[in-house]
Amino acid sequence: MTDNKDDFEAIRQIYTVLMLHFMDGMKQSDIASAMNLSASKVNRLIAQGRKLGMVKISVESPFQRLVELEKRLTDSRGVSSIVTPAVAGSPDTTLQQVGRAAANQVLETLRDGDVIAITGGRAVSAVVENMQPERRFDVTVVPLTGGVQGKFYTDVNHLASRLAERLGGRTMLVHAPLFAENQDQRDMLMEMTSIKEVFNLARKATIALVGIGSIVTPGSSYYDLHPVPDLDREDLIRNGARGEFLAHLIREDGTIADHPLNSRLVALAPGELEQCPRKIGVAAGPAKVLPIRAALNGRFLDTLIVDEETAASVLETLEPFQNVA
């Protein structure tokens, strides 16, 4: 039977080696030399220390609040989350930080041969402008919707071309308006060979990069998208719409709103991205809280990239609902 004194000496030696290695940063070879041990003995003592539970590693972020928000979002809805700092009094800077984080997230997983499908919107535009790859990628970028000319962030074809240019890839464009004049015209456009080909490719996308749109504030991008200049915002809200996803008006529970505008959309429906392995939603600002909640309730995303103030507000609305459920 091993003597207690021997046990103590063995533990003391393990402790000394662990302190020198993990706290003082000494190499195992230097520890062996300092303690007149063989390198294999030092390695064995470190392994024993780990087995005995003497090594506990704690990694803390200087942005611990952001890490906690990410974990809460993931626990609440099962989406991988990246939360960026909010810059007080500067929504544009906050959006650019979200765009930079989303760009880096795309680049971390992007592979040659991938298809990237995107929407328009200010947030997606911020992602495109912050995309700084270290090499060229053999990828194809395609729109998920028809386009609206007039502003750089509403013209999804412009954003798709710009993203393909930055990545060194190619693009296929949708030469059709986002809103058709009626449902029959929409159905006809969706069956056109050139448009059908792009949308078929979008359905097989490896990465979908999408904005999450607000319909609450009069200045929301949604009101730049459609051809009705005097669209009644209050009417949309009364009909249950809380946001837009792929330009589709969606309710709080994530279902597609029963609104005539949805039937005129030249765009993929949210459910058609179900097989896409990386659905990245990008949003910033208080106006996006309700739309984000609706998109999360609809299970449209597997990754959400958002600023900290918006993330906190989304959680305030999600967690009480979850507790009741």
Score class of each variant (00 low, 15 high):
228 V>L: 13
83 V>P: 06
110 L>I: 08
29 S>R: 09
131 M>I: 13
245 F>S: 03
1 M>T: 12
51 K>Y: 09
311 A>R: 04
140 T>E: 05
219 G>H: 10
67 V>I: 07
175 H>E: 10
107 L>R: 09
298 G>V: 06
210 V>K: 00
186 R>H: 04
16 T>W: 00
45 L>F: 08
39 A>D: 13
51 K>L: 08
99 G>F: 07
199 F>G: 02
29 S>V: 05
87 V>I: 12
121 G>V: 02
16 T>I: 09
194 S>H: 08
16 T>D: 14
301 L>I: 08
180 A>L: 03
25 G>L: 10
175 H>V: 06
310 T>S: 09
283 A>S: 11
109 T>S: 10
132 Q>K: 14
203 R>Y: 02
168 G>T: 02
198 V>Y: 10
56 K>M: 10
124 V>Q: 01
318 L>V: 11
92 D>R: 12
17 V>Y: 01
290 L>T: 12
235 D>I: 05
62 P>Y: 06
30 D>W: 02
26 M>L: 12
281 G>Q: 11
287 A>F: 12
153 Y>V: 08
17 V>Q: 00
181 E>Y: 07
181 E>W: 06
246 L>G: 07
265 L>T: 01
179 F>D: 03
164 A>I: 00
321 F>I: 14
94 T>K: 03
257 A>R: 03
86 A>P: 04
266 V>R: 00
112 D>F: 09
247 A>D: 04
139 V>H: 01
148 V>T: 15
84 T>S: 14
97 Q>N: 15
102 A>Y: 02
63 F>I: 01
235 D>G: 07
144 L>H: 03
25 G>D: 13
49 G>C: 10
189 L>M: 05
304 L>C: 11
165 E>K: 05
307 D>Q: 04
114 D>V: 00
157 N>F: 09
300 F>V: 06
2 T>W: 11
130 N>F: 11
268 L>C: 02
135 R>N: 09
182 N>L: 01
256 I>Y: 10
125 S>L: 13
300 F>H: 13
289 V>M: 11
246 L>C: 12
176 A>P: 00
43 N>M: 14
249 L>R: 03
56 K>V: 11
161 S>F: 11
83 V>I: 07
301 L>Y: 09
166 R>N: 07
73 L>V: 01
135 R>M: 10
231 L>Q: 07
97 Q>C: 04
205 A>R: 00
89 G>D: 09
19 M>H: 15
80 S>K: 15
13 Q>T: 15
141 V>H: 00
89 G>F: 09
